[in-house]
């Protein structure tokens, strides 16, 4: 069943046509970000218009810059917190029996099924009582609701690929269980953990729904700040596109640099689950 030459050409043609569709929204963002406000809203639309930096000046002078900073704090904080708590739990799931294992495993599935809108109203009320609204700690805690199960699940699959014999050997040599985890299992799982970390960071960077409700003037991330360019009666498309570009470009670089690993991380959960 050698694919014939004609099929090969058809295949590349279809894939290229698909890429054009994928590219159009990106091209729109890129072109609109460098348009004057009048040109960006012109009827009928102009695909190419005079070039300007004004949108970027506007975006980086206003509150959007602070919200980008908030996004960085939230993303770094969430990634560290999720990995510190989730990686050992993934190891525990992969490695054996302990009180609460079945409950934890079942709970991972449960939390994947229930949408955030179900948790968010009580969380809003609790956080209000605890003074965690508009605080980074509160936001990071709320982000954990979706990201922690994902981390535990993926890490468990990475750890279960590591032969138990290696840790047994270390234990015979006098390592404690903790040392066996820290010095033997964890270093071997590091490539997987890095990928999980990147996927969490991208997810935290892109999150909109949770901060829409739980963030405030001091902690608003860039995803929520982006919508401020959409006014009640008029939208500043140029500034919006420039702001979107600032939000998308870091993720683009990470994706292009780590594409192989990300592909594996995205599919590992589904293939093994």
């Amino acid at each position: 069943m050698r694919p014939s030459r004609r099929i090969g050409v058809l295949r590349v043609g279809l894939l290229t046509a698909g890429l054009v569709i994928v590219a159009i929204p990106f091209v729109w963002i890129l072109l609109t970000a460098f348009k004057f406000q009048v040109d960006a809203a012109s009827i009928p639309p102009e695909i190419f218009s005079p070039f300007t930096w004004t949108n970027f000046e506007k975006v980086f002078q206003g509150p959007y810059l602070q919200s980008l900073g908030n996004s960085v704090i939230i993303t770094v904080g969430t990634t560290i917190a999720t990995l510190v708590v989730g990686v050992p739990a993934g190891y525990a799931i992969a490695r054996g029996r302990f009180f609460g294992r079945r409950f934890l495993a079942g709970f991972l599935l449960f939390s994947r099924m229930v949408p955030p809108v179900i948790f968010i109203i009580p969380l809003f009320l609790f956080f209000h009582e605890l003074g965690l609204i508009d605080s980074f700690v509160g936001l990071i805690l709320a982000y954990l609701s979706g990201l922690l199960p994902f981390t535990i699940w993926l890490c468990a699959s990475y750890f279960s690929d590591i032969p138990l014999e290696l840790e047994d050997a270390a234990r015979v040599d006098g390592c404690s269980r903790f040392q066996a985890f820290l010095r033997v299992a964890l270093p071997l799982a590091i490539p997987g953990v890095v990928i999980v970390g990147l996927l969490i960071a991208i997810a935290a960077w892109s999150e909109y729904f949770i901060p829409l409700l739980l963030a405030g003037p001091y902690t608003t991330p860039a995803t929520v700040g982006l919508v401020d360019f959409v006014g009640v009666d008029s939208i500043n498309w140029g500034a919006m596109a420039a702001a979107a570009l600032a939000l998308a470009v870091p993720v683009f670089f990470v994706t292009l640099l780590a594409q192989r690993g990300l592909l594996r991380g995205l599919t590992a959960g589904a293939v093994k689950g």
Binding site: P88, R101, F107
Partner: peptide, 22 residues
């Protein structure tokens, strides 16, 4: 009790931010 120690922080957080709110 390393496995329990490793797993319970996650369990407690998930109880607090998903199961109890649910």
């Amino acid at each position: 009790h390393f496995l329990v120690t490793a797993a319970w922080p996650s369990l407690i957080i998930m109880l607090g931010i998903t199961l109890i709110p649910f």
